[in-house]
Design a protein around this nucleic acid. Structure first.
Lengths: 206, 206
DNA sequence: ACCCTATGTTGCCCCTGTCAACATCGAGGT
DNA sequence: ACCTCGATGTTGACAGGGGCAACATAGGGT
């Protein structure tokens, strides 16, 4: 009884420990044997819950996407904002999330950890996150805009925020001092320039 | 004599084999023992040339950056083009390189394989690649533009092409059929919109 | 009370990384 | 021509992880 033979909630515990390690940027030492040790459980107990480490990482990534969507969705549907303002806030929120959960974000998007194509549920969530972007960016366009143009703008926006996130996370933008300021400023520029339709000319200066 | 005891050019051979594996998207099975087997050499021979696998991968990444710069530099200095045209071509060339050498590009930028901060030479080459972008994008701006604005545009451009590359490489943009067309089209939009100064208004429709 | 299944444990094997001790080769000095 | 030394390659040994199979235990449903 002292130590119950069965852990009771090993699956959840595995995920939590993995998340801890991910957040501490220690993904490299996520392994069944190591996790088992840290959870005071025998080395092959984890196999009862995940067929391999990739599965475990994919599950953690899945939860990351879920949290990501939970953060983005409210912003994508903010009331009392112009479409451009919503688009801007969505972009800023996107990059902030990526930086605040940088290791998790890496896990979600870097194919080095697990093959997304083997985890349709993860793919589905990723696709859902993209639809938020597409929905929000399309609202900034003329009704006459073609689907192709809508897809192009949404994809450009995704590429931009994703690229900005990755460059920050991977340390390529160490020179930039005030990240939040830079993020807002560049997203603003992106939104203002890219959503302005041809006829209008381009607005303001700041 | 039959088999010379010494390989003769093991270092180069290791790099080449690694490159082969990288290009075949088999980075995961780059290991000294495996490489040694494939090169018909004993398992710890590689240690005479690289202190560990990370060093080897960093070297391959370094060569990747060198090749990258070799491709970008001529485009950044193309004669007979407007600054905007050069900027566009540089962006298109960037993404094309990334897609044509996708595994290599991943190796170069994903910190999962080696820690770039431990390899100053690699960092230097990465920085050089960025200066090409900054040089080319700045040429599209008013002389009155501040350094901060120049840095911002260059960084936005980098984020955009990097993000676009990563999304393609990691399979997030599988829906897009004609990649080359999409790349040129979106880079064109990016350049035209982002480099147009306020006073000019925005040009053409195409 | 019994059994069945989910869960955890242990033993075993093969893989990799890494070091230390030893072997071989080639180049330079004599 | 010969010797020596450093560079390179080899072998043995150990630690550690992934993964499977056989066994152990607990707890719930009959």
């Amino acid at each position: 009884m002292s130590k119950s033979y069965h852990h009771g909630d090993l699956r959840r515990a595995l995920i939590e420990k993995t998340l801890e390690l991910v957040q501490a940027d220690q993904v490299h030492l996520v392994g069944f044997r190591e996790l088992a040790r840290q959870l005071a459980v025998s080395r092959s107990a984890p196999y009862r819950h995940f067929s391999n480490v990739e599965d475990l990482l994919a599950e953690v990534a899945r939860q990351g996407f879920a949290a990501f969507i939970d953060v983005l969705e409210p912003v994508a549907t903010l009331k009392g904002y112009t479409p451009e303002e919503r688009f801007l806030e969505l972009g800023v929120t996107y990059v902030h999330f990526a930086l605040e959960h940088s290791a998790h974000y890496r896990l979600m998007f870097d194919c080095a950890y697990f093959k997304q194509e083997d985890f349709p549920e993860v793919q589905g969530l990723a696709a859902h996150a993209f639809t938020l972007l597409k929905y929000t960016s399309s609202a900034c366009m003329d009704k006459s805009a073609s689907d192709r143009d809508k897809l192009e703008l949404a994809t450009m926006a995704w590429a931009f925020v994703h690229g900005l996130s990755k460059l920050f996370i991977d340390g390529q933008l160490a020179k930039i001092k005030n990240r939040k300021r830079f993020i807002r400023s560049s997203c603003q520029r992106f939104v203002r320039r890219l959503t302005t339709t041809m006829k209008q000319g381009v607005a303001g200066s700041d």
